[in-house]
């Protein structure tokens, strides 16, 4: 299912003295099956744009096309619920949305809202606790007795239980310790690879965007200013500077190394592993007479 934003603008409290424009003429396409990262500073419009992906916000100008549904500015839309089953959003600090007496009930909440039977919802919940890396015993516990990291996993299971076709992740690793961060990102990547889940990652981590995304869109002051593959995007240091963004740590390191050895490596490396290989290769090359 593709999501397409065409000339989308959005203003909060439109038509009042408190009006605040958050998006300006945004064009953005998320192709089915891709992993897309949206990066930008706090206040760049990232969190406003993500609420358009499942019609939590409707554009004040322009069109949002979600699969075969068209959400147009100024038009009434019925049954937006169906869209929300297909596009799941994991909000920032999703553990704040837990409310049920048990973990099991909380995970079942989403699917049952969309008319899934209790048996089916429960079986999904049982599969998912395992998938998000929690022991089965937690199902009968109160979510409020779990640690912060565990609560987040429960909340994520609750979104996945709706079996969405697209998943939107808003800073999913915020506040986790380094191990938790890595586990979380690897889990979503595995889901993307194994189940072909279309993934949209909203983040300010250049490193995560470089490592996982097929394509990156950059938001700056309410506009989508650049869209490209990570490799091309991170070759354009000057352009990124304009939007007050830094290169991922790994690319900064590569530049430093290239300066030292006096020539560039064949391409921009996006992960530590890739760079290690490229350096080993370059050394072999230089050893050749």
């Amino acid at each position: 299912m593709d999501i397409k934003l065409q000339q989308v603008s959005y203003a909060y409290a439109k038509g009042t003295p408190f009006e605040k424009r958050a998006l300006f003429d945004v064009d953005l396409t998320i192709t089915s099956g891709t992993y897309k990262a949206i990066i930008g500073h706090t206040g760049s419009g990232k969190s406003t744009i993500l609420q358009h992906f499942n019609a939590l916000l409707k554009p004040t100008e322009g069109v949002v096309q979600i699969g075969d549904r068209r959400i147009e500015a100024g038009k009434k839309n019925k049954d937006l619920k169906a869209i929300r089953q297909k596009v799941g959003i994991v909000f920032q600090f999703p553990e704040h949305q837990l409310f049920e007496e048990t973990v099991l009930k909380d995970i079942m909440f989403g699917p049952m809202n969309f008319g899934v039977s209790a048996e089916e919802a429960e079986s999904r919940a049982r599969d998912l606790v395992d998938l998000v890396g929690l022991p089965t015993e937690v199902l009968e516990k109160s979510p409020f007795d779990l640690s912060g990291g565990q609560m987040r996993r429960v909340a994520i299971a609750g979104v996945l239980a709706m079996q969405p076709e697209v998943i939107v992740l808003d800073e999913p690793t915020a506040g986790l310790d380094p191990r938790g961060q890595k586990e979380m990102m690897d889990m979503f990547y595995a889901l993307h690879k194994e189940k072909g889940l279309t993934t949209i990652l909203v983040t300010h981590s250049m490193e995560d965007a470089a490592r996982y995304a097929d394509e990156i869109a950059i938001m700056h002051e309410g506009r989508c200013v650049l869209t490209d593959t990570p490799r091309k995007l991170f070759s354009e240091e000057a352009l990124l500077k304009e939007f007050r963004l830094e290169l991922p740590r790994i690319v900064q390191f590569q530049h430093r190394l290239e300066k030292m050895i006096g020539h560039a490596l064949p391409q921009v490396c996006l992960t530590e592993e890739e760079l290690a290989k490229a350096v080993a290769h370059a050394i072999k090359e230089s050893d050749r007479p």
Binding site: P178, R179, F253, R256, A276
Partner: peptide, 29 residues
């Protein structure tokens, strides 16, 4: 559950690729 500093992680990966290094490093420089 903690992470190594970037330079140390990089050192390990480079050594795994057979790159000769004199020691472990804490800074990129």
């Amino acid at each position: 559950g903690l992470d190594l500093p970037f330079a140390m992680k990089m050192t390990k990966l480079l050594q795994a690729q057979g790159v000769q290094l004199a020691g472990k490093h804490m800074t990129e420089e």
